[in-house]
Amino acid sequence: MSSATRVRALIAKEWSELLHSRLLLATVVGVPLIFVGVASANMLTVAALPPDPTGDPLPAYMLEMCDGLDGIPCVQVYLASMFHLLFLMTPMVIPSTIAAHGVVGEKNAKTLEPLLATPITTAELLLAKTVAPLVPGVLATWFGYAAWMAIAFATMPRPVVAHLLTPPWALAMVFAAPLMAAFSTLIGLMVSSRSTDPRAAQQVAGLGVLPLVGLIFGQLSGLVLVSAPLVIALCACLLVLDAGLWWLATQVFEREAILTRWK
């Protein structure tokens, strides 16, 4: 019997259940829509401001980020960089929410024991439970980001648009987003493996987003400037972290304890 068949079957089941869960579906669809709405509304509001509303010069770190632009267009570029980071929260939020239900949800629905009684191995089960939330999380991220880019291209001045789709952000969206999704999924799964309540698991797993919040504040204050080397370093760190978390997840997932100690 094929390991890939078992993993595929379980992923298909997870996605079918996702389509039947209003809460999870609302998360997958709602989070990127909200981010697109907030980002677009902010950018359009700033665009409608008078050219020099305060008369004060912009801070040096903003000007450094704008690379030649000043005034409202520079504020737009600065805000856009914040929203880029906001979009990078999507692959953290969605997969962890789905993954948090992954094990404890099955346990509460009493479906875990029949599942564990099959020849599926722990690694196969965890792989399916990791891929299933990760894919919608990454797709939702890319969809949201693409929608926002489309709106930006349609409404922003060309010089601003030129600063939106830059190599660091493209790298972040293509490579860092899936790695971040894997990171939050594995944390969600581990918490779910040791929890008795899906909501509690979701809340604890949500803490995994904190490092990204730190990055947002770093950029807001001008302490961190997102660049291609930074993104590559971030990806490398995430790769190592993900590998470590995968190993940890397989250790934390104790089939016996999950069956016998949870009541």
Binding site: A9, K13, S16, E17, H20, T111, E113, T118
Partner: peptide
């Protein structure tokens, strides 16, 4: 321990593949 939101046949299909 059935998946209550999935059709009966799909419940069985999952386990047929797992086995």
């Amino acid at each position: 321990g059935l998946y209550d939101t999935l059709p009966a046949a799909q419940n069985l299909r999952l386990f047929a593949h797992l086995y």
